[in-house]
C-alpha cells in the first residue's frame, strides 16, 4: 500500500464520466474511484472513456457486490473477471463493504449482517480469501444499517475492530455511514469514532444522505454533505494525516462544476485538518500550501 493518492476524489458515475473524460476535472481531483461492476463484461463508450481517464487520474477500486457477509462460497467467474479488470486498471488496494449482498439470490444492495463473533470470524476469513484471489490488499467499508440483526453480541466498533484484526486488513471509513447510523440508532458518532482503530484507516468516504421517514435517515448519496459529516472527516484527518477522501454522489447528481465546488469546499476543511495534524505530530509540511 506504499504508493497511493491522498486528497479529495470523486466516484466515476455515468452522469459525469463524459465531462471528466473531456478534461473538465483535470487538476481538481486527487483520484477517481471506480466500481468495477459497472465495467465488467462490458465494452463500448464507458470502457473507452475509462481507458482515457485512467491515464489522467490515479484510480481506486471500490466494489459493491463481493458479498463479504454472505454465507455461500465466492463466485469464481466473478473473481476471475474482477482480477482481470484490476490487473488492467491497477489500484493500490481493493475495497468492498461489510455487508451481505447475496443469499440465494442477488439483492443488488448492501444488507446488514449480525454483529456476532461467528459473523466476524466468517467475514475475516472471506476478506483474506478475497485478498488472496485478487492478489492485492483489501479494505473493508462500514455500511449504513437500518436494522440490527439477531442477538447483538458486540457493538459495531467492536465488530469492525475484530474483523480488521483477524483479517489484518485496512478500513475504508465512511463517516457519513457512521453519522447516519448514529442518528438512526441513537449513539454519539464521536464516541463511535473513538473506538475505531484509526491506524487501520486507509481511505475515507463522505456523502450526503436523505430521510426515509421522520425517524430514519437513509444513506442515498443523493444530497450535499452535511456540516456534521465534514466535521467528522476533519476529526479523523486530524488524527490520521493525509488519506484519500472520496466524495460519494450516486443520486440527484448535480452538474460536474457544482460537484467540483463541493470538492473544493471539502478540500479546504481537509487542508485545515491536515494543518492541525502537522502541528499535532510535529510533521513538517513538504510544500507550502497556497491560499
Amino acid at each position: 500500500m506504499d504508493s497511493h493518492p491522498t486528497g479529495i476524489g470523486l466516484g466515476l458515475r455515468s452522469a459525469i464520466i463524459a465531462e471528466i473524460d473531456a478534461g473538465e476535472a483535470d487538476g481538481a481531483l486527487a483520484f477517481v474511484e471506480v466500481s468495477p461492476e459497472n465495467y465488467l463484461w462490458r465494452g463500448g463508450l464507458a470502457l473507452d472513456q475509462l481507458a482515457r481517464i485512467r491515464e489522467r487520474f490515479p484510480l481506486l477500486g471500490h466494489g459493491l457486490t463481493m458479498n463479504l457477509g454472505g454465507l455461500g462460497p465466492f463466485d469464481d467467474r466473478f473473481f476471475a473477471e474482477l482480477k482481470d479488470f484490476l490487473d488492467r486498471h491497477p489500484t493500490p488496494w481493493y475495497s468492498d463493504h461489510l455487508c451481505l449482498c447475496n443469499n440465494g439470490a442477488e439483492f443488488h444492495d448492501l444488507l446488514p449482517v449480525p454483529f456476532t463473533r461467528s459473523t466476524a470470524k466468517r467475514i475475516a476469513a472471506r476478506i483474506r480469501e478475497a485478498s488472496d484471489r485478487l492478489e492485492r490488499p483489501m479494505l473493508v467499508e462500514n455500511v449504513s444499517y437500518y436494522l440490527a440483526l439477531g442477538e447483538v453480541e458486540m457493538d459495531e466498533p467492536e465488530f469492525i475492530a475484530e474483523i480488521l484484526e483477524q483479517a489484518d486488513c485496512g478500513l475504508l471509513l465512511d463517516v457519513n455511514n457512521a453519522f447516519v447510523n448514529a442518528q438512526n440508532h441513537g449513539f454519539d458518532p464521536y464516541a463511535w469514532l473513538e473506538r475505531i482503530p484509526l491506524e487501520r484507516v486507509r481511505q475515507l468516504h463522505v456523502a450526503g444522505h436523505e430521510s426515509w421517514d421522520e425517524q430514519t435517515l437513509i444513506d442515498t448519496h443523493g444530497a450535499d454533505v452535511r456540516d456534521e459529516v465534514y466535521a467528522m472527516m476533519a476529526w479523523v484527518i486530524e488524527r490520521t494525516g493525509p488519506l484519500p477522501v472520496l466524495l460519494e454522489r450516486d443520486n440527484h447528481i448535480p452538474p460536474l462544476a457544482e460537484l467540483l465546488g463541493e470538492v473544493r469546499k471539502l478540500d479546504e476543511v481537509y487542508q485545515q485538518a491536515l494543518g492541525r495534524w502537522r502541528r499535532g505530530t510535529g510533521a513538517v509540511p513538504l510544500e507550502v500550501l497556497h491560499g
Partner: peptide
C-alpha cells in the same frame, strides 16, 4: 460455540432476506 453461533446467524439472515424477497 462457534458452530452454534453460525447456525443462529444463518437463521436470522435467512429470515431477514425472506422478509425482503417473499
Amino acid at each position: 460455540h462457534a458452530s452454534e453461533g453460525d447456525a443462529k446467524d444463518i437463521l436470522i439472515i435467512n429470515a431477514f432476506t425472506s422478509a425482503i424477497r417473499e
